[in-house]
Design a protein around this nucleic acid. Structure first.
Length: 316
DNA sequence: AAGACGAAAGTGGTTGA
DNA sequence: TCAACAACTTTCGTCTT
């Protein structure tokens, strides 16, 4: 009876109903880490946090037994955030100075403790890699969970000895890029390249290597995932965005998207949707935000119109 | 004058021998 | 390792709004 009001964890995604207008039209804007209703523009946070513990306890003993403490384990810290350190001060827990004998013992312990921590090249490597990864993903605004995925990919690559003979930076950049793909965060390789410490060639080599040798499923970049980012850059209206999404879905079913630049497909879909919904943008504007040329937008849009049988007559 | 169109030639990456 | 290839880009003259 007492626990009836327990908060439920709620996850909002495309299938959820908008609290603002009641329509079920959410799209995820992973670039900005938000969910935006395509009908009324309501922005909802990804999750409504449940601040309470996930367990229930009915007696004091039970509570004590179930309580846990400490920071969560994180893969993006070289030692997963679980290391112990030995203080440099020669004082005991209550602040008293140590005796000469104990001090010598502590000194030896400290020495070996530090040595063992950076003992293997593996750990040393991770130390460098994780700080670079933190820098890179902060620079690119990558959300926490994608960073953890990137860290996991890097660890796998390292244990498979893929970093040998390659720069740490290139494998780090590749891991971050792949993590974005897995989390469907639209980041082009070029965006990673501009912030990374190595060149494009090395990074793309590392990307291919990791895909082939590390056992991870990396989905292909899809036009659908680009829609939220592009449409908000173009300030398109909700109905246009929905129309574009529909066009992409149909194009995918018709299998005409294979091997094509997703930017071109997404751009063309938005162009068509703009005409149909009287919310038009020029090919130049769209080409600019989609990072393809006007010619590509044109080719894709001609192709889409032809194979989907879309008529662009707006006056009726 | 801006936007759209399409032809032609050039570029970088993938694939298969 | 090389050539063939598809997709995409650059450039440019022309047509449309």
């Amino acid at each position: 009876m007492a626990n009836l009001a327990r908060t439920k964890r709620v996850r909002i995604n495309k299938t959820e109903v908008c609290m603002g207008c009641g329509e079920s039209v959410f799209t995820n804007d992973y670039t900005r880490g938000e969910n935006i209703c395509t009908s009324c523009g309501l922005v909802a946070s990804d999750r409504i946090a449940d601040r309470g513990p996930e367990w229930r306890a009915f007696t004091a003993e039970e509570r004590d037994a179930k309580a846990r403490t400490g920071a969560p384990m994180r893969l993006s810290i070289a030692d997963k955030g679980l290391s112990t350190t030995i203080d440099w001060r020669n004082k005991d827990a209550s602040g008293r100075a140590l005796t000469t004998n104990t001090r010598a013992a502590i000194y030896r312990m400290r020495k070996w403790h530090i040595r063992s921590r950076v003992h293997s090249s593996h750990h040393r490597n991770l130390g460098f890699a994780m700080s670079e990864m933190e820098r890179l993903s902060s620079q690119l605004g990558i959300p926490r969970d994608a960073r953890e995925t990137a860290a996991l990919i890097y660890r796998k690559a390292l244990t498979k000895r893929l970093v040998r003979g390659r720069s740490i930076d290139s494998v780090v950049a590749a891991s971050v890029y792949l993590a974005c793909r897995i989390h469907r965060i639209p980041r082009r390789l070029d965006e990673i390249v501009t912030e990374a410490k190595t060149n494009r060639k090395q990074i793309s080599q590392a990307v291919r290597l990791v895909i082939s040798k590390v056992n991870i499923y990396v989905p292909l970049a899809s036009a659908k995932d680009l829609i939220p980012r592009l449409s908000s850059d173009l300030r398109l209206e909700g109905r246009t965005v929905r129309k574009a999404t529909e066009i992409i879905k149909r194009a995918k079913d018709e299998r005409i998207t294979i091997g094509k630049d997703p930017g071109g497909i997404a751009g063309a879909a938005l162009y068509i949707a703009g005409i149909l919904e009287a919310d038009r943008r020029t090919q130049r504007e769209i080409a600019k935000v989609s990072h393809v040329t006007e010619v590509t937008i044109r080719n894709r849009y001609k192709e889409l119109v032809r194979s989907l049988g879309i008529t662009l007559d707006t006056d009726f």
